[in-house]
Amino acid sequence: MLLVPCPHCGPRNSADMSYQGEASSRPDPSSTTPSQWRDYLYMEHNPAGWLKENWYCSSGCRRFFTVERHTVTSEFREPPLPGSKTALPLSKTTETGADTDQQGGES
């Protein structure tokens, strides 16, 4: 299981976190076009290489942060940054983060 560098807690199991998808920036809602907005909502770039992505430290400090990860080696590039907004509420986490511990999922 990956250790994800939380800027507040330090390295933590990825199961303590909830993955929030690729980092993107929210278009200005007053001037956006449908194609820009839907790109923000639905399109992932999924590169084989460095990717800026959002994480939520759901079982820990409950802060959102953005970090660069290499999708081939899973190496993280320090340091993590404050989070950016994810378009849609991705994970149906419970109020207690209770869905984070995937038992035996790695074996």
Partner: peptide
């Protein structure tokens, strides 16, 4: 989580 995200990120 949704509320926290808006506050923390935007």
């Amino acid at each position: 989580q949704w509320v926290e995200m808006w506050l923390q990120t935007e």
